[in-house]
Computed example of a mutant assay.
Amino acid sequence: MAHHYLCKGSDLAEGCARGFDPRGEGADTIFVVRKDGRLHAYRDACPHYGDTPMAWRKDAYLDGAATRIVCSAHGAQFAIDTGICTLGPCLGQALTPVPLAIAAPDDIYAVMEET
């Protein structure tokens, strides 16, 4: 497993989400959400249809109240803490979680298989 640097923890505010391209593929492939002080990371792909990106624009992963992750292509809504679809065409399916590692002093890394 490889650790890919994402950002400083202080760069991700409470109630916000941010996309990352940890392998330099040219598009965000994972995103991280900070909710209630905890970080949650997922692949940037809706389970409803293949690898459909979730955001309709850069870092736009959450609903207006920042209480759910929303797929812009299908309108599916996902719980931030579990990634499980709670409303929409992929009800009961889940986003693919991405493990994170936090290193001193405040660095966030995605822990991913090497390709």
Score class of each variant (00 low, 15 high):
T29M: 02
T29P: 02
I30C: 05
I30T: 06
I30R: 02
I30H: 03
F31H: 11
F31V: 14
F31Q: 08
F31N: 09
F31E: 09
V32T: 02
V32S: 05
V33C: 12
V33N: 10
V33I: 15
R34N: 08
K35Q: 15
K35I: 01
K35L: 14
K35A: 13
D36I: 06
G37S: 08
G37P: 13
R38E: 14
R38W: 00
R38P: 00
H40F: 11
H40P: 10
Y42P: 10
Y42I: 04
R43T: 01
R43M: 11
D44M: 04
D44N: 15
D44I: 01
A45T: 06
C46Q: 07
P47L: 08
P47D: 04
H48V: 10
H48P: 12
Y49Q: 13
Y49S: 13
G50A: 09
G50P: 04
G50T: 03
D51H: 12
D51G: 12
T52Y: 05
T52G: 08
T52I: 15
P53A: 10
P53F: 03
P53G: 10
M54G: 03
A55G: 05
A55E: 11
W56Y: 12
R57M: 12
R57Y: 07
R57Q: 14
R57C: 14
K58P: 06
K58M: 13
D59T: 06
D59M: 08
D59W: 05
A60D: 11
Y61P: 06
Y61H: 07
Y61T: 04
L62S: 05
L62Y: 00
L62F: 03
L62M: 08
D63L: 09
D63F: 03
D63N: 15
G64N: 13
G64C: 10
G64L: 15
A65T: 11
A66F: 00
A66N: 09
A66Y: 02
A66L: 07
A66H: 10
T67M: 11
T67G: 14
I69F: 06
V70N: 03
V70S: 06
C71L: 13
C71T: 10
C71H: 10
C71K: 12
C71S: 14
S72M: 08
S72L: 04
S72F: 06
A73H: 09
A73V: 04
A73L: 11
H74F: 00
H74W: 02
H74E: 01
G75P: 13
G75R: 12
G75W: 03
G75D: 09
G75F: 07
G75I: 08
A76I: 00
A76R: 01
F78W: 05
F78G: 05
F78C: 10
A79Q: 11
A79L: 14
I80L: 14
I80E: 05
I80R: 09
I80W: 04
I80Y: 02
I80N: 06
D81M: 12
D81Y: 02
D81E: 15
T82H: 07
T82W: 05
G83V: 02
G83S: 09
G83M: 05
G83Q: 04
G83Y: 00
G83W: 00
G83T: 03
C85Y: 00
C85G: 05
C85A: 15
C85R: 01
C85M: 07
T86L: 15
T86W: 00
T86Y: 04
T86Q: 15
L87I: 09
L87P: 02
L87E: 13
L87Y: 12
G88H: 01
G88L: 08
